[in-house]
Amino acid sequence: MRIDIITVLPELLKSPFEASILKRAIEKKLVEVHFHNLRKYSIGNYKQVDDYQFGGGAGMVLMIEPIDKCISELKKEREYDEIIYMTPDGNTLNQGISNEISLKKNIIILCGHYKGVDQRVRDLFITREISIGDYVLSGGELAAAVFCDSIIRLLPGVLNDETSALTDTFQDNLLAPPVYTRPSDYKGHKVPEVLLSGDFPKIEKWREEQAMERTRQRRPDLLK
């Protein structure tokens, strides 16, 4: 999988990809992640990538021309399955979307900034708009990092135990059941006996029941 990220702040984005699971995935060549500084495609001597809104109003808007130049250059090299714009008014990210995008070969992620991008960018280039929640960040960079983490961890070979992602919260529209580790008795707080029994069919049944009950209590909307 190849991910090309267009941003005005590549330095803000890079650190999550230089540690932990994302770093290992890149080192194992399971994914390529490339950062493209939009200012490289800027206009004039001042490297302008944003301007005031037509019609007035507070806040700057990313201009169409630098974004067009960047996307066009990338598309000369390969075909892209999706060009994704991170924006608060996009479709809210969920596990189903992450599962779907993890199967793609090449994607571009455009990070919004300031008051967003010229609407013509969205009309002409964007194939999907994604939000990580009903709140506003200073830019799309942190949202892009969250989104990338959610899809890269699903790629075959990224997690040491490939079945781990299959039992995550939301994979089957249920919250994950409680988990425990050593010691089995900590200051009188004991691990449920069934988990120590070695009876795996009984353990799986317990986990299913716990997942259902936890979902019913915390996220009943998922059961509708």
Rank of each mutant, 00 (worst) to 15 (best):
I6S: 07
T7D: 03
E11P: 00
F17N: 02
L30H: 11
V33P: 13
G44Y: 08
G57H: 01
M63D: 10
D68E: 09
S72Y: 02
E77T: 15
R78F: 08
I84Q: 15
Y85D: 05
Y85N: 14
Y85A: 00
T87W: 01
N91D: 13
N106F: 08
I107Y: 13
L110E: 10
L110F: 12
G116F: 04
Q119I: 13
V121Y: 03
V121A: 00
D123Q: 02
F125T: 05
T127P: 12
V136Q: 14
L137G: 08
G139H: 14
L142R: 05
V146P: 08
C148K: 07
R153T: 12
R153S: 13
R153L: 08
L155R: 10
P156R: 13
A165M: 00
T167D: 09
D168R: 00
N173F: 05
L175Y: 04
A176Q: 11
P178I: 04
R182T: 00
S184G: 06
K190P: 11
V191Y: 14
P192I: 15
E193N: 04
V194E: 13
L195H: 01
S197R: 14
K202T: 03
A211Y: 05
M212S: 11
T215N: 05
R218Q: 01
P220Y: 09
K224W: 09
K224V: 07
